[in-house]
Design a protein around this nucleic acid. Sequence first.
DNA 1: TGTTTACTTGAACGATCGTTCAAGCGATAA
DNA 2: TTATCGCTTGAACGATCGTTCAAGTAAACA
Lengths: 196, 196
Amino acid sequence: MKYDHNDIIEKATTLFWRRGFHAAGMRDIQQALDMRPGSIYARFQSKEGLFKLVIEQYAQNSAERLKQVAKAESPLNALYSFFETALTGPDEQRYMRQCLLVKSIAELELIGDIAKKAVLESMQTLKAGFRNIIEACIEKGELPKHTPTSTAAEWLQNQFVGLRAFALLQDDNQTTIQMIDKVIIDLKGQWPQKTH
Amino acid sequence: MKYDHNDIIEKATTLFWRRGFHAAGMRDIQQALDMRPGSIYARFQSKEGLFKLVIEQYAQNSAERLKQVAKAESPLNALYSFFETALTGPDEQRYMRQCLLVKSIAELELIGDIAKKAVLESMQTLKAGFRNIIEACIEKGELPKHTPTSTAAEWLQNQFVGLRAFALLQDDNQTTIQMIDKVIIDLKGQWPQKTH
DNA sequence: TGTTTACTTGAACGATCGTTCAAGCGATAA
DNA sequence: TTATCGCTTGAACGATCGTTCAAGTAAACA
């Protein structure tokens, strides 16, 4: 066991995050991990197998961070910080602004069924995380009691997805922060009626 | 001139929209267009050259549709319809829910510089289109006069981006429509102050 | 009429893709 | 000691990638 497992996953995550599943070639992976093809295949079966582990690890980390937000004294403030951190990192980490899951969804049809399933399930996990945050906000009195939990959670995840795609192109952090402010305002705002 | 130009672009658009730039191989393109490689290269120089034309055509169409929205008697209602049409098409046109431009942004680094430029410029064009809609709404009294035009335009485009990524995964149109309702509510709602 | 030009054909090119495999290594168990 | 097992190596595989090119066709112009 020459190479540490967590170390491998971490390096692979960086590569997939930067380049995407398809564009990250096996030779890129070999170089990034400093491993030979045989080693990679003996451990992970395939490029897709490695990617699956990367996605699962990424989702687990993200879910953990969302859980921290929900546990915070002021979940609403913690949510704000979470958005700000994710969306306004330094320029050399610009690739991180794009959510790895969202990036993967864009190339969902090029990915094998196994990793595809991992991506979609991870999205569900994060959705549950957002829902917990909404509920925590209501409990702490930071959001009105009548806030439609499920709709708001879906909406919040949606905002996150949109902002991450947008922040990737945005040079001006000030604009991004205004968008985050708007999210918080709208989160407290009105919600559509179900009847239609 | 055996093949009609517009016909070629239209077929190529469908293919790139479905598969993305990278995943759409030259042999897929040859089959979709019923053309041999030499013909394609004589006309479009490269795969990227064809893609560039597709993007420009797509952006032009989209800009035209946004212009129609701005010209409508009730731009706000027209905006609603525009969102609804784009996000809740029939299942066999599900690929269309994802904005071709947004999809292309996800693989921006795999695309050559020429097409990359076309994608980014097209995003600017659409942003201007959204801005015109905001202004039309204000003029018609459908939005308050103090609405920050530029911020709102960026926000609106952002919502569109997010919703299109989201609707791709969403099975339930009812949920999508609720999200659109929420967009309209928030559009009329409060906006963040610039001071920070 | 011959020349030019834009377009078309389809075989073929070199490069790169994900993957395989025989061989070797080092730790553990019998 | 010997056998087994997970991991490692690196050359090599077949498939596919975007692209080229010599040759041919048809319309436009001289």
